[in-house]
């Protein structure tokens, strides 16, 4: 392309045309993703799910080491539908570990202040979002999840995902719930919880339940506590 007078004039005329194109396309994107502010399509608007405080179970349900129970923590997600929102369950598992640990993961999310032998994991796999299972006998993990055999010190209850066979160790040293096999890029996500008497109260969940978000963010923390 030559840069003579005609070329320069052509380039100048192109600017408003391109500008108009972008102006037309931007609202089109917002038609598909209405929660964005104008021009905000490429900035992250996580649409953080809201949950509040919910009692999910009793400490007495976890009497012995490796006792566990499943629970669901209900959060509201934004949905681009006439209702605008949709309540969604975040399935979780509560586990009694044989010894007390610091319930803080390598992403820096603090699940419990101080040491605890009760840990609460979000069962939404950090890999691609399937729901993983708590498998109390590791032999079942070897049989059903592709043939993984844990090393000796991990021959205890594990958590394993049916979709792509990511396997998590709830008792992993210094990072409970870390991934020990499979394609997941990080360990299992945590719930933030408190213990009030016999009640286990979840006050928030690590963000990334459905589509993963920035590490360390807390969902539901800002929402007013909800009576359950």
């Amino acid at each position: 392309m030559k840069l003579d007078r005609r070329g320069v004039l052509k380039a100048l005329t192109a600017i408003p045309v391109v500008g108009a194109l972008i102006a037309v396309l931007s609202p089109l994107f917002r038609f598909l993703k209405p929660n964005d502010k104008p021009w905000g399509i490429f900035t992250i608007t996580p649409d953080l799910p809201q949950g509040g405080a919910q009692v999910v179970g009793k400490v007495s349900q976890l009497a012995k080491p490796w006792d566990s129970f499943y629970f669901t923590y209900v959060q509201k997600f934004v949905q681009y539908t006439p209702e605008g929102q949709e309540a969604s369950n975040v399935p979780g598992v509560a586990i009694r570990l044989p010894k007390k640990v610091k319930f803080v993961n390598s992403e820096g999310f603090v699940g419990f202040e101080g040491e605890t032998d009760i840990v609460l994991f979000s069962r939404i796999c950090p890999h691609l979002g399937c729901i993983y299972n708590y498998v109390s006998d590791w032999h079942e993990v070897s049989a059903g999840y592709g043939g993984f055999r844990p090393p000796g010190f991990e021959e205890h209850a594990l958590m394993a995902c049916p979709c792509h066979f990511s396997i998590y160790d709830p008792e992993y040293p210094d990072n409970p719930g870390n991934v020990i096999s499979g394609p997941a890029p990080r360990g299992a996500r945590y719930f933030r919880f408190e213990v009030h008497g016999d009640d286990i109260v979840v006050t928030g969940a690590e963000v990334g339940a459905i589509a993963k978000c920035a590490p360390g963010a807390v969902a539901g923390a800002a929402a007013p506590p909800r009576e359950t």
Partner: peptide, 8 residues
């Protein structure tokens, strides 16, 4: 149609 799989 939002951050979660649903009606959207």
């Amino acid at each position: 149609g939002g951050p979660a799989l649903g009606q959207g």
